[in-house]
Write a protein that binds this DNA or RNA. Structure first.
Lengths: 181, 181
DNA sequence: TCTGGCCTACCTACTAGTAGGTAGGGATGG
DNA sequence: CCATCCCTACCTACTAGTAGGTAGGCCAGA
């Protein structure tokens, strides 16, 4: 595993469990048993690290969305929720996008744009699913775009609640309502 | 206005706009044009400040919930959503409970218990509304407790999305779906 | 005279970031 | 075949600044 990737892996997990402000280059250095200056070799500033983190996360998430090949809308939606649920782990971490959104003011415009892009991509994907759901009648709804907003909000909020409780099943409890109408 | 209250007001706004980790006692002192040591006089540690913040926020929020006197379930729910929407401001801040949930690991057990209590109180209130909605038929639903989870998750997620976009209307877009079934 | 509220002046620990150096590997040219 | 050169990836040692927190003093009002 190359060092840069390992650094990103650790930084992502720290950002998602404790928040981006709550870990330092020194923490990363310790985790990889290296010196702080070497972390700076890979990411010159913490802002650069933030940008690399959210960009990689967005690309990786969207790539996984693209792999969902279920033909029917309801199954596609179930797969989406399962993906979101997976990012929650055992209730000890958040989706990086959610974590970053909470402390948005700490980031520069480039990171803000990535966060916004993550939401836009997710909303587009979900709106397509709800539009399909109107056609194949597996997800009856009057407004695909509106349903997409509600669905994304529900998933993100369910993560927050599960994280607050430290219990992943809270996520299941909240998201179960999506497919019941 | 007494100093302690003003300190709490400023700290709350900072925590909700930038995150609890992202402001310091020095920031608070500057905001009130006083010295850092004087802030410590009112809140001996930052953990004590966190606890005072979340406790006051929870009490104040629940007091405002108790003031909702609409008799019909749908109107009660609308009032709840309006209250949540109000905490969003112009899209530049989060509900303190949401903000704290994101960096849960930074807090001690007492704060964790308050966050959990806030969620529990909210869920109870919402479950009562959805139960009433079954009876007065203004909010048809099969599972009041489940609907409460979904509703709270949707409101919290809608806040995150609105905050990420910096546009409060995103909240309206997402929460509009709740009352449409 | 005592207390609440604030102050100055300090502490230790840690933050992000920098300056400058080095071990070792691959390429290039004589 | 080997010396030179530049490269990546790391290091030690440091900077300036900020974090939370504390000791002890001043002063106004009850």
């Amino acid at each position: 595993m190359d060092t840069r990737t390992t650094l990103l892996d650790h930084a992502e997990m720290l950002a998602r469990t404790r928040g981006f402000e709550a870990f330092s280059f020194a923490d990363l250095a310790t985790a990889l048993d290296m010196r702080k200056a070497s972390v700076h070799y890979h990411f010159s500033t913490k802002a650069a690290l933030a940008q690399a983190l959210i960009r990689r996360y967005r690309e990786s998430f969207m790539a996984r969305l693209a792999l969902i090949d279920a033909p029917e809308a309801d199954d596609r939606l179930r797969a989406y929720i399962a993906l979101y649920r997976e990012t929650l782990g055992s209730g000890d971490r958040l989706c990086l996008c959610v974590a970053f959104s909470c402390s948005r003011d700490s980031f520069d415009a480039a990171v803000g744009a990535e966060i916004h892009g993550f939401h836009r991509d997710s909303l587009n994907w979900l709106a397509d699913v709800f539009a399909l759901g109107q056609i194949d009648e597996t997800l009856p709804n009057a407004d695909p775009a509106g349903a997409a907003y509600a669905c994304l909000a529900l998933c993100e909020g369910a993560q927050i609640m599960a994280r607050a409780a430290g219990e992943a099943h809270v996520f299941d409890r909240a998201t179960a309502q999506i497919l019941k109408g």
